[in-house]
Design a protein around this nucleic acid. Structure first.
Lengths: 199, 199
DNA sequence: GTATAGTGAATGATCATTCAGTCATTGCCA
DNA sequence: TGGCAATGACTGAATGATCATTCACTATAC
């Protein structure tokens, strides 16, 4: 039997780094969800944008759900790294917070599709399982900032809410695409600080 | 020709008020989106939950999109009414804000599916057209609070962002389903006030 | 009798997922 | 070293499910 030849090899450009097809699929999901919502992110559309065949996505991910979770985890992890990269551990908590806030905002502003993907997952029914998975899959360096010393400065509220008042606005601002000058950004970051700390 | 008899009349219960099928469809969409996201809210599922035939939804709404917009508009309108219902126009802006904040929160807490529907639409690609439509379709009494006098008390930021810092947290809190005591709620409402007003 | 609301089966499109089959790589034996 | 079987990435057409929307028809209201 046999017949057609449906496999265009790999092209391995000049023996360099191998292509990361799983990563391409994750990025394609990110951008399609950001642009058109989950509705417009079918597996075939994702595969097409990633430049791979539909079946390839399933080589790397068991299901669409698994792909969504993996993508969410990657975005969260990169966000945590970006948030902490410039933080000086010896600075005051207020300064550390502002550095984190701007770290998050700048990171997402550079590629707003990350922010739009995040807010969409976080307000969908995926949110609960995704959070659960994120908590068990890695240590979030942002949450690690919540120590007895810093908590003493914060309003006596659940951590989710502190996060929602303090850092989530940076994500939503980046997702909105609204462009603001340095002054306004500083105003907002400090507004978040005021919201999360005790009056 | 003819054959089957596929029409179970109306039942008009004891000649009382006529059934509001369009409203039932809107409520069904709300609850299904709140529970399972847009993904789980197919027109047939919506119709089934509303207790009507699939075609009935299309008697009242041109398309699924139109139904989503109409539902969004209804929820927004009711929210505006709830926010303002207890506001005393002669009170200070701080007091008026707190009344609005609690008005929103209580209204949504009573039926959290409204809140969950809202946050889901507001972070989907539906958000932009839905906002546009809401702005042109009715006067939002909440936005009418933004007068020269009140704006003087607020941080010099775009109104969307003021809303995001001040009132949106009430919606998200209701959507989260987190139960808090009166003290914590007052803390959060005042945190929002601090965030939106100048330092 | 005309207009309006309602019905649910039928239609065609689209979706997630599967799979038979192709290619590249690797490890193993001679 | 050269040959080769096994492994796993990759492909895209095929499958069955599900979806939005339509429509021929029926009942009710005016």
């Amino acid at each position: 039997m046999t017949s057609t030849e449906p496999y265009r090899p790999v092209a391995t450009p000049t023996g360099a780094e191998k292509v990361d097809r799983a990563g391409a699929v994750r990025r394609a999901l990110r951008s399609l969800v950001a642009e058109h919502g989950f509705h417009g992110a079918s597996m075939s559309a994702v595969a097409k944008r990633a430049g791979v065949a539909t079946g390839t996505a399933y080589v790397h991910y068991e299901s669409k759900e698994a792909l969504v979770f993996a993508t969410y985890l990657e975005v969260k992890r990169e966000l945590g790294t970006a948030a902490m990269s410039a933080v000086d551990p010896s600075a005051s908590f207020h300064e550390r917070f502002l550095t984190m806030w701007f770290g998050i905002y700048r990171h997402l502003q550079l590629e707003p599709e990350r922010a739009r993907f995040l807010v969409q997952v976080d307000s969908s029914p995926f949110a609960r399982p995704a959070h659960q998975l994120a908590m068990s899959a890695y240590d979030d360096p942002i949450m690690a900032e919540a120590t007895p010393e810093t908590l003493a400065l914060l309003a006596p509220l659940p951590l989710d809410i502190i996060y929602e008042l303090g850092l989530a606005p940076a994500i939503r601002l980046a997702a909105s695409g609204i462009e603001l000058d340095e002054t306004a950004l500083g105003l907002i970051a400090n507004a978040c600080w005021r919201a999360m700390t005790t009056a």
